[in-house]
């Protein structure tokens, strides 16, 4: 089995889905001849032609708006927003139309659309190229939000996203794009949306992370392991809808939890997770659930970003706090 990076795994998923279903089209800025600024769509233009892999004008609102119209007509567009910080121009189309057309038309129209976008910090990029805005999207009823953490996960989740009948925002952790390689089957497989995965089992504390935060979380779990503490690491995978059952079951077992995300703290997804844990497992808790997050500030430029992004050390400190509460 070939070892692939996340970029290669996503590329493979796109290629296979386009081969399987002629309704799948890829569109966005620089996705065609150039193969995308991260080369995620490399080779697709040559393989499928300019009718199915389309370089669009520099026009985020139109990229999403046009995709909604195509989806209503029977296509399955996979649109790329080049960086998460540029999605704001398309937010009106996402919030006011993509997420609602099924409700507004009472099912006469729906919107099988995937919006792929690289997100998150850690690659020394300029302003607007390092943000984590998943909470804005998770807060929008009618959208599904997915954030894969590894190459294998990315391929399986993207296949499900493309086949889903509703709009899915597919947030790709750009820090992971080429950072890790793992075995990714060439054969078709899919990972269902709405189910998280237990990355490592443990009995002492539950650590919940997604996307690029999985790696520092696993590192923290390993460090704790050296001290004899067993961490159960949950890779959230789908941020909306959330898979409460797996989370609650784990927290009931470990009685302690730490949530790690690089997005700002206030009203981040961590807050929602804590609310659900409180609703469903309060009496099992031995300590308040901790959050390790970005700050409620603008994402700093590269020279300071390492201070902003949660790392294994910060996760270890938080675990120590919940253990010693």
């Amino acid at each position: 089995m070939a070892k692939l990076t996340m970029v290669e795994a996503i590329n493979l998923a796109l290629k296979q889905e386009m081969e399987r279903d002629p309704a799948v089209v890829v569109l966005g800025e620089d996705v065609g001849k150039s193969g995308g600024v991260f080369r995620v769509t490399q080779g697709l233009f040559e393989r499928f032609g300019d009718g199915r892999v389309v370089d669009t004008p520099l026009s985020e609102s139109a990229i999403v708006g046009v995709s909604i119209g195509m989806a209503a007509y029977g296509f399955r567009p996979v649109a790329e927003i080049q960086f998460e910080g540029f999605v704001y121009g398309a937010m009106e189309q996402l919030i006011s139309h993509a997420s609602r057309i099924r409700t507004r038309s009472r099912g006469r129209y729906h919107c099988p659309l995937v919006v792929r976008m690289p997100y998150g910090g850690g690659i020394r990029a300029p302003e607007h190229h390092s943000e984590s805005n998943e909470a804005l999207l998770v807060h929008t009823p009618g959208l599904k939000v997915v954030a894969p953490s590894t190459p294998y996960e990315a391929k399986g989740l993207l296949v499900s996203a493309v086949r889903d009948p509703d709009p899915v925002i597919f947030m790709e952790p750009k820090r992971v794009y080429r950072a890790i390689k793992e075995e990714v089957p060439e054969e078709e497989y899919s990972i269902p949306l709405g189910q998280c995965r237990i990355a490592t089992e443990g009995k002492d504390v539950t650590l919940i992370a997604w996307g690029a935060m999985l790696q520092p979380t696993l590192k923290a779990a390993a460090l704790m392991g050296e001290r004899g503490i067993g961490s159960e690491v949950i890779d959230l995978r789908t941020l909306s809808p959330l898979d409460d059952d797996t989370i609650i079951e784990s927290v009931k077992k470990t009685k302690r939890a730490v949530i790690i995300h690089e997005a700002p703290r206030t009203c981040g997804l961590g807050a929602e997770l804590i609310a659900r844990i409180n609703e469903k497992a309060l009496l099992y808790l031995e300590a308040p659930v901790e959050r390790v997050t970005g700050f409620d500030t603008v994402m700093p430029l590269p020279k300071l970003e390492q201070h902003y992004l949660p790392n294994a050390e910060r996760v270890v400190e938080a675990i120590d706090r919940v253990l010693s509460f």
Partner: peptide, 15 residues
């Protein structure tokens, strides 16, 4: 906001 969506349907028809 319906304008880009209409363009999308037109594009789909063309394809």
């Amino acid at each position: 906001t319906q304008i880009p969506i209409a363009a999308g349907a037109a594009w789909a028809a063309k394809l």
